[in-house]
Design a protein around this nucleic acid. Structure first.
Lengths: 237, 237
DNA sequence: TGTACATCAGTGAACGCGCGTTCACTGATGTAC
DNA sequence: TGTACATCAGTGAACGCGCGTTCACTGATGTAC
C-alpha cells in the first residue's frame, strides 16, 4: 500500500469523523460540506476528491449510524451471553430476560449518547434525500440482532408460542416473509409480539430524546426499566 | 370590526395555510418565508407585518399541528361515545375497547394524512429552534384526550387496577404528579401501562411513516389493528 | 358630512450570509523502463 | 539507480443560488373633530 493510498484512507475517515461531529452539533439538515472542510483546514472543493456530493456524505453517516446501533446490540448481547454462560442454573426465561434487557438497554444507551445520529436515522426523514440501496443492509442490522434473540428464545423454550393468531392474508404473507430470516421455528404470534415491543422501544426512546415526556417524567431510567420488563412479559407470552 | 382588521385576520390565516402547504412539500427544515410570500404573491418583507420572524411562523405551525391531533382525538372519541350511547347492553370493557381503538386510529389517520406535520411535531426536533412556552398546552392536548379515556375506563370498571407496582421514589413522584391531571382514581399501575401503549402507538406510526418497516410490512392496517388490540388487552389488565 | 391627521399594509432595494458544485491550475507522489 | 511520464491531491477563484431581515418609501384605510 502506497503512502498516497494510506493518506487517502485516513483523510476519508477524518472527513467522516468531522461530519459526524458537525452532525452532533447542528443536526442533519444543517450539515454542510464547507463547514466540514473548514474544520479540517481544507478548501471545500477538496472534499470532492473523497465524496462525490453532500448526499453521499450523508449516506455514509447514515450507514455508519445504523452500523453503530447494530454493533451496540450485538456487543451487548454477546456480553450478556458470556455472563450467563459462566453461571450455571439460570433457566431459559431468565436468560432471555437478561438478553432482551441487554439489547433494549444498548439501543437506548446508544441513542442517548448520540442523539443527533439517532434523529438522523430514526427521526424525520431528511427532506429531499432519498436513501440509496446501500443503506438497506445496515438499517436491518439492529433488528437482526433482536431476531436472533427470538430464535434462541423459541429454541430454548423460554418463549411460549401461544395459539396461532387469525390474520388477514396480506399480513400473514408479510410475516411468512419475515420467517425466511428467522427460520420457521418462530411462529407468527411471536413475530407480532416482537414487532409490538420493538416499535414500543423506539417510541419510548424517541419520546425521551425528543422531549415529549418533558415535565411528565424525570426518572427515565426507572420508567424504561419498567417498560422493558413489560416487554419481556409480553414476549414470553 | 373594520375592513382593515378583517383583511389582516384573513391574510394572517392565508399565510399560515400557505406555510402549511409548503411544509407538506418540503418539510420543516426547508420552510422559507420567501417561498411562502411568493405563493401568496407578496414581497417577502410583507410577511413581517404578520409574523415577526420565521421561527414565530414555525411556532404557529407547531401549535396548529398539535391542536389538529388533539382535535382528531377528541372528535373520534366523541363519535364513538355517541355511537356507543345509542346501543344498549355494551359492557364497559367493550366500550373502552371501542373508544381506545377510535383514539389510536385517529392519531394514526391524522399522521398518515399529514406526514410532514407529524414529522414536525413527533420527529426530530428542528435544529436551532427552541420551542417557546406557547406550545406546551397544545402539545399536551392529544395525551389529555387519552387520559380522559383512562379515567372513564377506571370509573366504569373496565380497567382492572391490578396490584400497585413497587417503584423507585422519583418515578412514583412523576406518576403522582400525573395523577393531578387524572384525579386520584387512576392508579399508578394503570398510568405505567398507559405510558407503555402510548409510546408504542407513536413508535408504530413513526416506523410506518418514516419507512422503517419498508420491505417488511405491506399490510400496515392489519398490523396496526393487531397492535391496538394488544394495547387494549394490556390496558384492561 | 367633510376635512386633517395618524395609522398601517405592502413595496422594492439592499445587506450580508452561506451554500453546493465546477474548473483550470500546480506541485507532489507513484510507475515503467 | 535514475529518468520521463502519468496520476492524483489540494488550491483558489468563480458561478449562481436562496435565504432572513432591515429600512425608507407611498398610498390606502381609519379616526377625531
Amino acid at each position: 500500500m502506497t503512502a498516497r493510498a494510506r493518506a487517502r484512507a485516513e483523510l476519508t475517515r477524518e472527513i467522516l469523523e468531522a461530519a459526524r461531529r458537525q452532525l452532533a452539533e447542528v443536526g442533519a439538515a444543517g450539515l454542510s460540506l464547507r463547514a466540514v472542510a473548514r474544520e479540517l483546514g481544507l478548501v471545500s472543493s477538496a472534499l470532492y476528491r473523497y465524496y462525490p456530493s453532500r448526499d453521499e456524505l450523508l449516506t455514509a453517516l447514515i450507514i455508519e449510524a445504523y452500523d453503530a446501533v447494530g454493533a451496540a446490540v450485538e456487543q451487548a448481547d454477546g456480553r450478556v451471553r458470556a455472563d450467563v454462560a459462566s453461571v450455571a442454573g439460570d433457566d431459559a426465561r431468565a436468560v432471555f430476560d437478561r438478553r432482551w434487557r441487554g439489547v433494549a438497554g444498548a439501543v437506548r444507551a446508544w441513542a442517548r449518547a448520540h442523539p443527533n445520529e439517532y434523529a438522523l436515522i430514526y427521526g424525520s426523514p431528511v427532506p429531499g434525500y432519498a436513501a440509496p440501496t446501500d443503506t438497506i443492509a445496515p438499517a436491518a442490522r439492529p433488528a437482526l440482532g433482536f431476531l436472533a434473540l427470538l430464535v434462541d428464545g423459541v429454541a430454548t423454550g423460554a418463549i411460549e408460542p401461544g395459539p396461532d393468531p387469525v390474520l388477514p392474508p396480506a399480513l400473514a404473507g408479510d410475516l411468512a416473509a419475515l420467517r425466511e430470516q428467522t427460520g420457521p421455528a418462530v411462529p407468527e404470534g411471536v413475530l407480532l409480539r416482537a414487532l409490538y415491543v420493538w416499535t414500543q422501544l423506539f417510541g419510548f426512546i424517541s419520546f425521551e430524546l425528543f422531549g415529549h415526556l418533558h415535565n411528565v417524567i424525570t426518572d427515565f431510567d426507572a420508567l424504561f426499566d419498567h417498560h422493558v420488563a413489560a416487554s419481556t412479559a409480553l414476549l414470553l407470552e
